[in-house]
Design a protein around this nucleic acid. Structure first.
Lengths: 342, 342
DNA sequence: CTGAAAGCGCTTACAG
DNA sequence: CTGAAAGCGCTTACAG
């Protein structure tokens, strides 16, 4: 059995309340002598306060929830590791714990959030992969529960978020392709239900238009972000009567799949076809040829999102509430940058 | 304010205890009429039991703890994503939550565990990266707290674990190199404090000896598993009077760094020098040339470890207690397998 | 079949 | 400066 506050009180010869006051180091004055006795007893017994009891009594949990969705054993977001690392570190800095839930089936999603939120298992949640008419956001808003979001809302919604300017990213990427001489540029977008999918498509179209290039819907696909999907989409494009000479994919996994599809047809990526990805995952630097890609500062985003959420939980006014960060185009060799420099 | 059990009782016109009995669906008989009233009231109010209160009263938490160590913003274990995914899914299957703690500084490690364990924040923990004389294991054993370990113990210790036979993996890898004609094989091992580092070194030496090849300590390095470290180790080897013609690295990140170091010196990997990694991370399939590597079934290990831990927490006899799984050599092109087939 | 009551391990106003 | 007491939201033996 674990040692409790009462054990400490007994050994120290004081009341249980006094033990609490010493632990919490609150405003209440405690004599040095009493404090010393209590600290000694705590040391002796190796006492640690029961966190559940503390939380129940204090009516707060100091725990942040993060639900990640897996499809076929895979995280659906390639950036998840950076997010997790930064959120975890920021939580630790503020004395918060991080509760992770896995969601393998969309049908269960709502019940996971209801348990976490309604059961007061966590004090706030971080949402990723926001969708159109997202039921999670409707629920959290209705409950008045603290949450922050990775990604922007729809126009009629208003909540705290941090996002990367996806349109700027895809616009710059397309411009980069055009500057290098590619003219027929395909687009492998994200699942259409995701809000950020619109944004990225808009940047793609904007850049085409600005350069007087036509928009051809046959050159646009919406996929879940896996390598297989990228392969499939690219194979489809290459089978067209007028195949594209370049492709912009909305994740590096999609881009890697697209590269493989092109290579299988004997095309040399960077010479016969240009490829750009999104995210800058580790493989992007190591694949052949190295992948030009749009980098999102995920570590920084995780840190700031977490800080924002904790401020909201604590009832403070958050220092920042709605942030859009610029992405960075990381130029490597997959769209022929090297060809130009030679 | 959240709705409580008493609100439900009031609305349903029954005692609070009855609400509990309905929720817990226990052995106690409840009339259909009463049950219906209670369920109706729960539905009306959107009631969710307070998880902290339940846990405190039941004297258990249904939460599993996983502490991951970050160095310079990076997870120290490349396999962490697979582990996390599988553990998360297995937890969900059993109604457990997963609590993640970040440890950025070894000095804080002990206090993290003390809070988690002593504070009864979690019901059991999964340990990774076991070290010689690991203080965490000593602490958990002394507390009699449920834990399982990814990795084998030292000979005098006895605890539940799942491990991959690292010696078998490195032995096979070295044999593979030798079979392909490489003769002077370097070894980039893991941090010497890790128990699994010994194992892998032993496999390396065993294979050399069996083939009548000398063991040269100048060809052995122990590194943290980062790409930079791999680069540094390989650069050191290549600067020797008698540089190696092949290298076995104990993680793919180390191997990728080693490959880069070799390529910087103008060597063609797979022709001038053979490289093998460990883990089979995604980049291993995409790097150039694709990396031959030793694959660990991490997803499966996570699932089984988690199941084992939950059985121990529930007081059952675990179906399995100490498991050693074989790794698989995934042959790609970095040690010249293709050269042989041509 | 159902209710009143004890108690999980704490925090914190209240009284001295 | 310190203690006795109420209560956070539940579960579960005990009594009817």
């Amino acid at each position: 059995m674990a040692v409790t506050r009462d054990d400490v009180a007994r050994l120290a010869g004081v009341s249980p309340a006094t033990v609490s006051y010493v632990i919490n180091n609150g405003p209440r004055p405690v004599s040095e002598e009493t404090r010393a006795k209590v600290l000694w007893a705590i040391e002796q017994l190796g006492y640690q306060p029961n966190v559940m009891a503390q939380n129940l009594r204090r009516q707060r949990t100091n725990t942040i929830g993060l639900v990640f969705t897996t499809i076929e054993r895979h995280l659906t977001h390639p950036y998840f590791v950076d997010l997790l690392t930064s959120v975890g570190e920021e939580c630790a800095r503020h004395g918060f714990d991080l509760l992770l839930s896995t969601c393998t089936d969309r049908a269960l999603e709502q019940s996971i959030y209801e348990r976490l939120v309604g059961g007061r298992r966590v004090a706030g949640v971080i949402l990723t992969g926001v969708r159109h008419n997202d039921a999670r956001i409707a629920y959290l808003s209705a409950e008045g529960f603290p949450f922050v979001v990775l990604g922007r809302p729809e126009p009629d919604e208003d909540f705290p978020y941090i996002d990367v300017d996806g349109a700027q990213g895809t616009d710059e990427a397309v411009q980069h392709l055009i500057d290098l001489g590619w003219r027929r540029i395909a687009f492998i977008g994200l699942s259409a239900e995701l809000i950020c999918a619109d944004d990225r498509l808009a940047g793609y179209r904007r850049a085409l238009e600005r350069n007087g290039l036509p928009y051809d819907p046959r050159l646009v696909a919406n996929m879940h972000t896996t390598e297989e999907a990228g392969h499939q989409a690219m194979a489809g494009f290459l089978a067209l009567d007028e195949p594209p000479d370049a492709v912009l994919a909305c994740s590096d996994e999609l881009a890697l799949g697209a590269m493989n599809a092109a290579q299988e047809q004997g095309l040399v990526v960077g010479r016969d076809v240009g490829v750009i990805g999104f995210d800058d995952i580790p493989s992007a630097a190591y694949c052949r040829p190295p992948l030009t890609t749009i980098r999102q500062p995920m570590y920084e985003i995780g840190t700031r999102l977490c800080r924002m959420l904790i401020q909201i939980i604590e009832g403070e006014e958050p220092e920042e509430r709605q942030v859009v960060l610029p992405p960075t185009l990381v130029v490597r060799e997959s769209c022929g940058a090297r060809r130009c420099s030679s």
